[in-house]
Amino acid sequence: MPPAPLDRRGLLKALAATATLLAAGPLTTAPAEATTSLTAWTTQSLEAFADTLIPGQRRHAGDLPIVGVVTGPGAVQAGAVQVLASPDLPLGPWLPGIAGLLDARALARAAAHLLWLPPGWPPFVGLPFQHRTALVTGLFDPDDPDRPIWQVLALLVGLAFDTAAHRHTTDALAAGHPGLAWIGFPAPDPDGLWRFPEHSYDRPLAALHPNTTASGSPA
C-alpha cells in the first residue's frame, strides 16, 4: 500500500511553530530521549541529509549514512538528529514523512542517472556523495515547493553543530561536544558565565568626545 500523502499545510504549521520555539530559548530534552520514536530507516535518511550539509568522518566501517568524505566530526556526531527529533519541537511526527520525501527524490535521481542503490538502505543513503550534494542543492531552489521544509531542517542541523542546541552549553562543552570543540567555542569563566573583555577590533573605534560623562553618556 503506498504511503499516505504528506499534509503539507500541517507540516508548514509545524515548521512555523518550530521557528518560534527556537527563538524562545534552548531545547531542554536530554539527547538520549530525542530519537526513541524514530525508526532506523527514518534515522538513517535524516543522518544522511545532515551529513550532506555538514560532513563528518564515519563512526565505524560500513557506516553508509555518513559517507566519510572528511576527517573530523560532522553534523551527525554533533547531534543533528537529536535536535530534529526533540520532543520540545513539533517536528517529530512529521520526520518519517519528510524522510519519505527525501527518499522519493533520491529514487527519482537514481532512475534518471542509472545509479545502483544498495538494498536494505533508504534510497538517499545509497546515493553517492556527489549525487547527494546535487540533490540537496536543488532542494533549496526558489522554485521548489518544499523549500521551507529543507530550510528549517538545514537551520536545525546547523544549530546542532554550531550551538549544541539540544544541550546546555556548559554541559555540552564539559562533555566535549564535537561541533563546539571543532569551531573553538570558548569555555566560560569559573562562575559559568561568558565575558568578553577583549573586543574584536582591540582598539577604540573613534576618539572619545571631551564632554563625555564618566558613565559614557554624551554631555
Rank of each mutant, 00 (worst) to 15 (best):
A24C: 07
A219T: 01
A75L: 00
F129W: 13
A164S: 05
R203N: 01
G25M: 08
L21T: 05
W121T: 11
P3E: 12
F185D: 00
G10C: 00
V136H: 04
T18Y: 05
L15Y: 02
V70M: 01
S215G: 07
R147A: 03
Q82R: 12
V67A: 15
E47S: 01
L127S: 04
P128E: 07
A80W: 03
G216A: 00
L95G: 04
G62Q: 03
D162W: 13
I66L: 13
P55S: 03
L159I: 02
S215V: 04
F196Y: 13
T212Y: 03
P26A: 06
Y201T: 14
P142E: 00
L107R: 14
P55L: 01
I54K: 06
E33C: 13
V157F: 02
D144V: 01
G97K: 02
T35Q: 12
W182V: 07
D141E: 12
L155N: 06
V69Q: 11
Q82F: 01
P55H: 03
P204V: 08
P119E: 14
Q151N: 09
A85L: 07
E198P: 07
P90Y: 00
H199N: 12
G68F: 08
L114W: 09
A4W: 04
G74L: 03
P178H: 02
A104L: 06
L180N: 02
T133A: 15
T169E: 07
F161Y: 15
L91Q: 10
V81Q: 06
P210R: 04
A108I: 02
A207V: 11
R203A: 14
V125T: 10
L27R: 01
P87M: 02
A48W: 05
P87G: 00
T39D: 12
D141Q: 10
G62S: 03
T52V: 04
T163P: 04
V83K: 06
L115H: 05
T52Y: 06
A174M: 04
V76K: 05
L139I: 07
T43K: 13
